[in-house]
Design a protein around this nucleic acid. Sequence first.
DNA 1: CTGAAAGCGCTTACAG
DNA 2: CTGAAAGCGCTTACAG
Lengths: 334, 334
Amino acid sequence: MAVTIKDVARVAGVSVATVSRTLNGHSNVTEQTRAHVLGVVAELRFVPSSTAQSMITRRTHTIGALLPDLHGEYFSELIRGIDLAARARGLHLLVSSSHGDASEAAAALRAMNGRVDGLLVMSPHVSADFLWGNISGDLPAVLMNTRLADGRHASFAVDNHGGAYAMVRHLVERGHRSIAFIAGPESNFEAQERLAGYRAALADLLPGSYEQVLQGDFTQESGSRTGSQVIALTQRPTAIFAANDAMAIGCLSALNEAGLQVPRDIALAGFDDIPISRYVSPPLTTVRSRIAELGGLALERLASAIEEPNHASAQHQTLRADLVVRPSTAPPPT
Amino acid sequence: MAVTIKDVARVAGVSVATVSRTLNGHSNVTEQTRAHVLGVVAELRFVPSSTAQSMITRRTHTIGALLPDLHGEYFSELIRGIDLAARARGLHLLVSSSHGDASEAAAALRAMNGRVDGLLVMSPHVSADFLWGNISGDLPAVLMNTRLADGRHASFAVDNHGGAYAMVRHLVERGHRSIAFIAGPESNFEAQERLAGYRAALADLLPGSYEQVLQGDFTQESGSRTGSQVIALTQRPTAIFAANDAMAIGCLSALNEAGLQVPRDIALAGFDDIPISRYVSPPLTTVRSRIAELGGLALERLASAIEEPNHASAQHQTLRADLVVRPSTAPPPT
DNA sequence: CTGAAAGCGCTTACAG
DNA sequence: CTGAAAGCGCTTACAG
């Protein structure tokens, strides 16, 4: 059986209240009692039950992260950013990802109830009402990269639209007039925004041109598959813009396999700037998503909302998405 | 204020015991009371406090994962494998990573105490004694890829030594007689085993040859840096074997930048078979680590240990590490 | 089948 | 400065 505060009190010859005060650093304990109690605590290797503590303080010092079914480096960067910020604040991280559908996400959300002091939510299945219906109303939550600006929760998002627009402009400036787009999953908010940015830029910068959208799903495999489709086209575009780096890299492999060289034969760009992107050949032109930073900022905001529930803002903040130009879109040698 | 079981009991006009029994699916409740109680539960949107439940049942239905400071796809694959298996068993996942040193790892370990029903441990800072000293003795734990076969905890590891050995054999069979090795962090168990496998194979298969070891740290950046060092060598090896894929990919980028073509000018191989490896150009020959599977298996074993504490085996299981041959080690055209 | 009561391991007014 | 006691929100013998 685990040792409890009662055991410590008994062995130390004091009350449990005194042990509790000592452990919690209250000032009203003699230096002498304090030292003695601490000695017994060490001797007995006593660790307070965090469950019992949570019960009484209504704080778990844990935050939950509801994440999409993400593979690859995007996911690890996000977790890393959250984890780092959480550790700095002494918070624990409960993660839940890989929800196939809304009911699974709902179950995950409900299961978080009571286990966490707050929630970080990035999920394609979650709408504002959905969130509202599945967590207790007073649980602080911060949204990441979702469409929800419900006025109730703070939210952060990368400027997906602006980033995609900037990328198309870059390609146009490089002389491209036929730019294909490999889209992400249709239900995904970020994918939609990036597609919208591509479309808007095309309309503005290449009026009269038509869009060429291939359907991907953010995986490398889909990038490779759609890459092959592009190659087979009779009217091949001169540039391909993939909605994320994973697809761009998959596409790159298909192009290489077909004997096409990037950027000589065709230009290629991605989105996110996952760490690997600078290490593929040629290094990938992309849009920096500041993934870890996004996670860290969201965590900070959530921590504030937990500490000062009244001050909690429901502001939406958009993070800049900067163009990162690398050789994959270098101008063809003239 | 959140609604409690008392509120439900009051509104339903029954005792809290009856509400509890209904919620926990006990048979000794009339179908009529049951329906009525469930109605009130829904009406009040009552969700039991998991904290209070944990307090009484001594189960948190949460497992903790202590992970190394890992970047990149290896980490996301591992988490994904663990998360999938955990979800299937109805377990939650508390993750803690990014510990710079042993004292941070110790703090993380102690913080897990009481919050989790069991522990999954993969950390370069953790030794058997260390683990023993920082968790309560009866907390089930399963170790992943560590040196600890302490006879107290179950453990899983990829056959790092065998995989590295097989890779060297493959390279030797391809005609290479000068094979450089980019090592991982010196303190890392897996890195050590892979290095040992390289050395053993060299001694067995290329007697009289000398080893060429460059010090990396498992990051892409270190692969790129050591790759540049190799290029500068007067006696350049004909093949480079990196202790993980991330470094191999970093190395590949350095080779490309220097105008060297893989595999024509130099062969290159990695270890882990992270998903991206098949999408770089040329696709990377590597050793499959079955990362997600490792995480899933460890979780399964941990779940068993939690459910049947007496049956808990302290067995060590080694997972096969298969060679995956791709174009990066294709024989030079003769 | 149902309820009153004890108890899980803590923290925190309230007295002294 | 210290202790006795109430209470956090549940579950589970024990009676009836």
